[in-house]
Amino acid sequence: MAPLLQVENLTIGFPRAEPVRDLSFEVSAGETLAIVGESGSGKSLTALALMQLLPRTARVTSGRIVFDDRDLLGLDAREMRQLRGREIAMIFQEPMTSLNPVMSIGWQIGEVLKVHEKLSGRAARERAIELLRLVRIPAAEKRVDDYPHQLSGGMRQRVMIAMAVACRPKLLIADEPTTALDVTIQAQVLDLLDTLRRELQMAVVLITHDLGVVAQWADKVVVMYAGRKVEQALPGDLFNDPLHPYTRGLLSASPRLKSDFHYLSGRLTEIPGSIVSAAGEAGCPFRPRCRQARASCGHQVPPLIAQTPERLVACPFTSSLKAVPDAASLSL
């Protein structure tokens, strides 16, 4: 069976930069794909490209986005609008500002149903109440007339989710859905997303920089660095045996509860330098920050090597890296 979403060699260009380069990944129906990477790695732009909502100055310069056997880049504006909100939905990072402050949440949820399912005002309101119940908002029939400023951050994100799943989309793109929320609320929201994914049989593209989120909720992980995919793996493999030096750096830079490591017993390691150093780099974009960089790394962008069908890594020196004592200490 063909995957639900197929992104092939996607390149996104601004007039002076290419923030996403040659990116490929697939998402099957009902699957959760996590895209991780630090700020500036091109995750959010990738998400916006899937919705065809890129900022005005950015455009997809090459590649294909095939969704449900349709090439999204070939669709005209009207066809794309019919897809947005109905078959592909998106929730954003900032629940505080992503809802219109001057309209009730019920109206905002209902609007998407009016547009795509031609529901009347009253029917849309009824469905909005049902959807609020679905996202576990208590006293939904009262809350439906509330305005965004009357809700907490977690509640607003639930409203965003209700809005996104209103038309039972096949694909839900969640762009850092929990970054702006309290840690306790984060887990609730992600659990809710996961439950809805199973109930509604949606595929989810989860964009995050939180490795804890990846470990718990993803079926498949793509690690991005400076607009390129540097590693792809199943979450278990990624955490037990990170291959790319960047992934190793990321993992060693995040505290983990399972190990006996504690922040009192030593500093967390960090990846030296900044992602800005990737600009203008002819070879491996990670080279300026990589401890294992060699002269050959600067010659060309390392191709993705398939270790197994699920396991891709864009570094030719992964096997020899394990011998480096410094790297071994990273796999905490």
Binding site: M51, L53, R81, R84, G85, R86, F92, S98, M160
Partner: peptide, 21 residues
């Protein structure tokens, strides 16, 4: 503002986004 992007993500027409949001 972010909510305008949300409105586009719902599949509204540019006119609908302008007039209503």
């Amino acid at each position: 503002q972010d909510f305008v992007r949300t409105a586009y993500a719902k599949g509204l027409t540019p006119f609908g986004v302008t007039a209503r949001h």
